[in-house]
């Protein structure tokens, strides 16, 4: 519950998502405390990605879906009338299963969000690029060719570039939608490594169906199960609730 640790960053209250009248998610309640990695497990089709996309209102972009219930970010309802979804998404970043790099240089990709948000002065950009790429464990591999086309990178490198791009925005929360399932083992390891280093400083919500990955990374887990055609929060696997030793050390 919320009071068990520090104040919750995200609270999901009785959230349902419907396509026409058919529910996809039903009555979801979830609390994400600050600074943890929360793993969201469940079979495919249980609506894990849909739930994740509700947390930064990216769900708005999918036409034909109706969202009921509430998601609170620092106590403020994000679906409320006056809420600004673009500002919200700048604070809650997302990483998809497939890397979505823009057809531009590596440098431009990292700066993509920052340039539009206009929060970082131009003079600080080189530093920002190094920090973001460093946090994403990509700096060493690309520092000599920042102006090369990003599409020439391998898929694993592209995914880390996407991570760097999100981190450059300095988000409080990072939503990760099976970020390593399309990657080769080495890149997957590098991404996991980066995620572990972020722990404590940022809040991470990780959708995965790789149990071992959840065990390696997560402090907390939640399970989505399919009941009567819609996803609901089920009982987490007791084995998974225990943090893995590596996590404890960091």
């Amino acid at each position: 519950m919320a009071e068990s640790r520090s104040a919750p960053v995200l609270e999901v209250r009785d959230l349902s998502v419907l396509a026409a009248t058919q529910p996809i998610l039903r009555g979801i309640n979830l609390t994400v405390p600050a600074g943890v990695i929360l793993a969201l497990l469940g079979p495919s089709g249980a609506g894990k990605s849909t739930l994740l996309r509700c947390l930064n209102r990216l769900i708005d972009l999918t036409p034909g879906l109706r969202v009921q219930g509430e998601v609170r970010f620092h106590g403020q309802s994000i679906f409320a009338a006056g809420a600004d979804p673009d500002a919200l998404r700048a604070r809650i970043g997302i990483l998809f299963q497939q890397p979505a790099v823009f057809p531009a240089s590596i440098r431009q990709n990292v700066l993509f969000g920052v340039r539009h948000a206009g929060r970082v002065p131009r003079g600080d950009w080189p530093e920002l690029i190094e920090r973001a790429l460093g946090e994403a464990s990509l700096w060493e591999e690309v520092k000599d060719r920042l102006d090369a086309p990003a599409l020439r990178l391998s898929v694993g490198q592209q995914q880390r570039l996407c991570l760097a791009r999100t981190l450059a925005m300095n988000p409080e929360v990072l939503l990760l939608d099976e970020p390593t399932s399309a990657l080769d083992p080495r890149s997957a390891e590098a991404v996991e490594h980066s995620l572990l280093r972020l722990k404590g400083r940022r809040t991470l919500v990780l959708v995965t169906h790789n149990l071992a990955q959840a065990r390696r990374l997560a402090d907390q887990t939640a399970c989505l199960v399919v009941r009567e055609g819609a996803g609901e929060i089920g009982l987490p696997d007791p084995d998974l609730d225990r943090p893995a030793p590596t996590v404890g050390e960091i």
């Binding site: 673009d86 604070r91 539009h116 925005m169």
Partner: peptide, 8 residues
């Protein structure tokens, strides 16, 4: 989605 996810 990637661009919107960055807050654009």
């Amino acid at each position: 989605q990637a661009a919107r996810g960055l807050g654009l």
